[in-house]
């Protein structure tokens, strides 16, 4: 069993009480620090290495077929703590070949980056895996309007995500062949 040992605190010696030797030690430490390697990252020229699960600016992504994944369910709008997301739902026109069997898509999708707190809830809640917080971290603008990312901007930032689900292909197959996937 571990025994508690109470250490006797020795009274300070005379030289210790003048503080001078301690100051000299401190000076030595700081002086030697001057020649150590610098840790500064020269930011705009050198970029930081982002960790794998970094949460940057939220973006909308397309599936490998280049179709928009978001079905405008508005769950992300609902869950977003600072209410940064605003979605105007719309329906997909019947004649759009590659998006058959999907009823809805956002007409407009805005994320206000002045409100967003990068919490990642939207990504977590999305049933379609359509919204992702990617690596982009430096967003700036001269006006408040510039800081609201609209749908086009969101897709531009997000791009295409290589996921293997092909959900809508499956959906189409299922509908045509009457086979629940």
């Amino acid at each position: 069993m571990a025994k508690t040992v109470v250490l006797e605190r020795k009274p300070l010696s005379l030289s210790e009480r003048t503080y001078l030797p301690q100051i000299v030690t401190g000076l030595k430490t700081t002086f030697s620090n001057m020649f150590k390697e610098k840790v500064t990252l020269q930011y705009p020229e050198e970029k930081p290495q982002l960790p794998q699960n970094y949460r940057g600016v939220p973006t909308l992504v397309k599936d490998p077929n280049g179709r928009e994944k978001c079905v405008s369910c508005q769950l992300c709008e609902f869950v977003c703590p600072p209410k940064a997301i605003r979605i105007t739902p719309g329906s997909v026109p019947e004649d759009e070949e590659d998006r058959e069997h999907v009823e809805k898509a956002p007409q407009e999708f805005e994320i206000n980056m002045l409100r967003c707190i990068y919490c990642g809830y939207c990504q977590e809640v999305c049933p379609e895996e359509a919204i992702f917080l990617l690596d982009e971290y430096s967003s700036s603008g001269y006006t408040r309007e510039e800081m609201i990312n609209n749908k086009a901007k969101l897709y531009e930032l997000g791009g295409t995500l290589p996921d293997k689900h092909y959900k809508w292909d499956k959906k189409k197959d299922a509908e045509e062949e009457g086979n629940a996937h």
Partner: peptide
């Protein structure tokens, strides 16, 4: 400058 060097900055 000196404070930066002593703190590992540039």
């Amino acid at each position: 400058k000196v404070s930066a060097w002593m703190q590992g900055r540039v």
